[in-house]
């Protein structure tokens, strides 16, 4: 069994501990020896996405020092994994273990489908679900074919969830439009960000989704904030919270 370093992004650690626990439980139940190195904090994405490389770079270096030793690194976030895989190169190029780290850091769904190759999922989730295909996981990790691409369709999140009994994954009018979170964008461009979010929620609602499910808690936090302010009935859930209740084999 490969050693797995569990990477729990800072905001998940602080604000959504249940998502971290769910991820840990899924991996341990699959028999992995999972370690959570406690010195970890953040991948540096907030700073890097604001163009502040000087502030982000030390975090990338720390990340390599902390996680470089594991066979695999797994995180319940598409966005943070994309940071490691696609945006560390210009700082860490040529450093020992960097290429290994870059190529072996996985978002949970791609890990389960592509590396663990889970084929059987036994569980119930009798709800209408709308998938929020967060952008970095979608277009930088290619967790699914994006609606712009004219290639054969696939969707790793749907592949996992669709096996659950009773689940109905609804069809959205805009299958992968951005929710408008975008990190600092959410406050820098507050007006457009919130309008984008409300439009997403409306699309999910129109399709009858009771639960909006995604793999990035940051986007879901934004949608949830809008939902609760408007006192709407929908809920948001991280895909790990759903899979945690099922048997994976």
């Amino acid at each position: 069994m490969p050693s797995v370093g569990l990477f729990i992004p800072c905001y998940v650690d602080q604000l959504y501990p249940q998502v971290g626990l769910a991820t840990l439980r899924i991996l341990r139940r699959l028999g992995f020896n999972v370690e959570f190195p406690p010195e970890q904090t953040c991948c540096g994405q907030p700073m890097a996405n604001s163009g502040c490389d000087a502030a982000a770079r030390p975090l990338a270096e720390r990340f390599l020092a902390i996680f470089g030793k594991y066979d695999h690194v797994v995180a319940p976030s598409g966005s943070c994994v994309s940071m490691v895989r696609n945006h560390y190169d210009h700082w860490l190029h040529g450093k020992p273990r960097f290429e290994h780290l870059r190529d072996n850091t996985f978002e949970l769904c791609e890990y389960l489908t592509g590396v663990v190759k889970v084929t059987k999922i036994d569980g119930d989730f009798p709800f209408k679900v709308g998938l929020q295909m967060s952008c970095h996981g979608l277009r930088e990790l290619r967790l699914a074919r994006s609606s712009e691409q004219m290639t054969a369709p696939y969707n790793k999140v749907r592949q996992l969830l669709s096996q659950l009994r009773g689940i109905e994954i609804v069809d959205l009018l805009r299958p992968d439009e951005c929710c408008g979170f975008g990190g600092a964008f959410a406050v820098d461009e507050e007006a457009v960000s919130c309008l984008m979010g409300r439009d997403r929620i409306e699309d999910h609602a129109r399709a009858g989704a009771e639960v909006i499910v995604g793999y990035d808690m940051s986007c879901l936090m934004h949608l949830d904030g809008l939902i609760r302010r408007a006192e709407r009935a929908q809920r948001v859930m991280h895909v790990a919270e759903i899979l945690e209740k099922a048997q994976l084999a």
């Binding site: 604000l15 959504y16 507050e190 936090m221 934004h222």
Partner: peptide, 18 residues
């Protein structure tokens, strides 16, 4: 953040506490 959105509920313990 809070002009049109609620902040997330603040959990008592973080993941690393748990």
């Amino acid at each position: 953040w809070g002009v049109q959105r609620e902040l997330p509920a603040m959990p008592k313990e973080s993941f690393r506490d748990l």
